[in-house]
Design a protein around this nucleic acid. Sequence first.
RNA 1: GUGGCUGUAGCUCAGGGGUAGAGCCCCGGUUUGUGGUACCGGUUGUCGCGGGUUCAAAUCCCGUCAGCCACCCCA
Length: 416
Amino acid sequence: MAHSFKTLPGFRDFYPAECAARNYVFDVWRHVAGRYGFAEYEGPILEPTHLYRRKSGDEIVNQLFNFEDKGERDVAMRPELTPTLARMAAARQRDFRKPLRWFSIGQFFRYERHQKGRGREFYQFNCDILGEDSVIADAELVSLAIDLMRELGFTKEDFRIRLSDRNAWVDFANQSGVAEGNLSVFLQIIDKMGRTPEDKTDEQLAGLGLSLDAVKSFMQSGPEASDSLAEILANLEFRGLSEYVEVDLSIVRGLAYYTGPVFEIFDIGKGMRAVAGGGRYDQLVQLIGSVDMPACGFAMGDMVITDLIRETEIPAQKLETAVMDRSSLDFYVVVADSERAGEAVGVVQLLRGAGYRVAFPFTPVKVGKQFQAAEQSGAKRAVVVGSEYPQLSIKNLEERSEKISSLDSLLADVSD
RNA sequence: GUGGCUGUAGCUCAGGGGUAGAGCCCCGGUUUGUGGUACCGGUUGUCGCGGGUUCAAAUCCCGUCAGCCACCCCA
């Protein structure tokens, strides 16, 4: 084992079991997005590094897989999709009726330390509504996010949407006399309040002319903090989803481009990092594509949600069932007489032609072993091809029952 | 970038100065065309790598690398 090759740090191999689990999550994402009338799109995996600088500033480059290509372009593996989306939407905005409801499932790359729920490569579901400034769009996204979680098998005991509104804080700051130039500093302080010692927060706030008590008091103001919050909550109430949501004004979400309501999904009791997050970003399309287009969206990565699924009973069972369903065969064709191996593959193809998932042994194997292989493949039934051909026998592996069939009647007998 | 923990068979791990073990997995067998259990047998390791101490190191010491976890960051 001296010099074996391994995956690069933070990168993953997906063996069939993991790949099936991943695809199950993809299917749920795609399925639920479809129920909301979202259309799937995709962008390039490699983009000009500048696209991300434009949005997030130079410090972001430290977290990028970027390099110079053979045409001496500074390029980066995409760390997120929103800038690409903004570019795409702006470039052909006249081609689409508003609002755009678009989703995407893709792979992303960030050059950072690998830890639980976080790698250098991951998949992310992105879901955005563009060209709509009503906060009902925001509510629609929250609702979609809740339905994703429910579709995966989670209940209100398992997760919560924490909903906030940056504008509530902006209004608060304005009314409290915080200078315009200190707004982003202020939001940073709010964002970090939960993990900063109180006396330090107090000190920082004092620097802006604010008191910790006033901030803490406003933090408790709930849905009254802004009209948008109240409206979103009322909308979710009509949907019967309000029990999944709580107003939590401590949610501000790191970077500066959010302009309104923001939300994150958190597990209850497991203490993992955020499962998903998003919000309104009304200026970004303008910034990237010079087109004025309000927008909101959210993203969910595959790593935290998969951890959470595996650590929660019902979702874990749903995943296992789905993985089993998609990996198991419908039929295993047992070649009981190797003289009939040729006829057996004919039977195999007949079944495959009818849409069944079928496998058979490539080399002569004892019949007992073949049944064992059939069991382990998850096949529900076996078809035995032997010297009696074209007479066949269909065996139900679960019930251990057997019935006689023939080449001509096989498909009919099998579909009963 | 900082810190903590861990590196022994494909996997989960035990052992603890005298040149390696268990369980699982995998493969084969338990007499010639019928199955998950059981039983028998088998493969695999320079005990992460480099150096030091010692008659002797997987075991002790130093370094290094890797992994995990946390901090920073989190689009």
